[in-house]
């Protein structure tokens, strides 16, 4: 699961996304949130810190 789904707290997600930029050259994250709260936290707390 850890290798397919990005999961964690907003702070952890920011770190995971930064790692993906390094590991696979991520330049466009096409996020598929798995819950309403996931979308809300992504929009409010993750995106502003990585975009």
């Amino acid at each position: 699961m850890d290798h397919v789904i990005l999961h964690g707290t907003p702070h952890e997600l920011v770190d995971r996304i930064a790692a993906l930029r390094e590991e696979v050259g991520l330049n466009y994250l096409l996020a598929a949130p798995l819950s309403r709260e996931s979308f809300r936290l992504l929009a409010d707390e993750v995106l502003p810190r990585v975009a």
């Binding site: 990005l6 707290t9 993906l20 696979v24 598929a32 709260e37």
Partner: peptide
């Protein structure tokens, strides 16, 4: 790159 995301 599409990724499934679970944040809480």
């Amino acid at each position: 790159m599409a990724r499934l995301i679970a944040v809480a």
